[in-house]
């Protein structure tokens, strides 16, 4: 037991040590409600899908998520409902334009240290230097332009709007990275409740049986 606790404790220490040595990420409270995720879908469709794909998400997944099926029909055009959400720009063109293929975003919310916070901080991490070029705090080597326009946003209202849009997008990405997360957690509460009751009963049975031993 001690051995494991030590390893566990050391992992926690290591994680905190690592985090402190890197750029500090903003924390985002991810929305799980259909409206937030739905807004994220729309933002992704208009701002991201020209370059990025979501190959593990199908149009039918959007319908079952509760997105208006008329909008889904509009986005998919003549593709079947079972088609995956692919980038509009062929990968070769993207390579030519940016020098690297834009990554698939289906698992992005899970594929970086920091998860949702990383993506959120990255989207908002753009800034303009005095010489007029745009850079990113979180991922300096990024090839992606500042899509949400954070580097040019001066007014507080504008920045807040961009932040809330980033939150919508991140919420959608979190859903996409693990579509069954809600189902998993709600099932988890039942399982924990059941196990608690069963274990309690086993505890009483155990006491009863052992009490007979002199």
């Amino acid at each position: 037991m001690n051995k494991f606790m030590m390893v566990l404790a050391s992992c926690c220490l290591a994680a905190s040590a690592l985090a402190s040595s890197e750029v500090k990420l903003d924390t985002v409270k991810v929305g799980v409600d259909a409206s937030t995720v739905g807004r994220g879908v729309e933002a992704m469709m208009s701002d991201c899908h020209s370059c990025h794909s979501m190959k593990y998400i199908k149009y039918r997944d959007l319908v079952s998520l509760g997105v208006d099926s008329k909008k889904v029909d509009e986005w998919r055009g003549d593709q079947p409902l079972d088609a995956a959400l692919m980038a509009q720009m062929p990968e070769a063109d993207a390579m030519a334009a940016y020098g690297s293929a834009p990554p698939d975003l289906s698992l992005m919310a899970k594929a970086r240290e920091g998860g949702a916070n990383y993506v959120y901080s990255y989207l908002l991490g753009y800034y303009t230097t005095p010489d007029g070029t745009t850079h990113n705090h979180i991922f300096p080597a990024t090839k992606m332009p500042d899509i949400l326009g954070m580097s040019n946003a001066k007014e507080a209202a504008e920045r807040t709007a961009i932040q809330s849009k980033a939150r919508d997008i991140v919420s959608y990405l979190v859903w996409a990275s693990d579509p069954h997360a809600q189902e998993r957690q709600s099932l988890g509460y039942y399982v924990m409740g059941y196990l608690f009751v069963l274990t309690l009963m086993l505890y009483f049975v155990k006491n009863q049986i052992w009490a007979k031993l002199k």
Partner: peptide
């Protein structure tokens, strides 16, 4: 108690 626990466990 044992019977009840068996039923609950079996259901699980």
């Amino acid at each position: 108690l044992i019977k009840l626990t068996s039923v609950v466990g079996g259901a699980g």
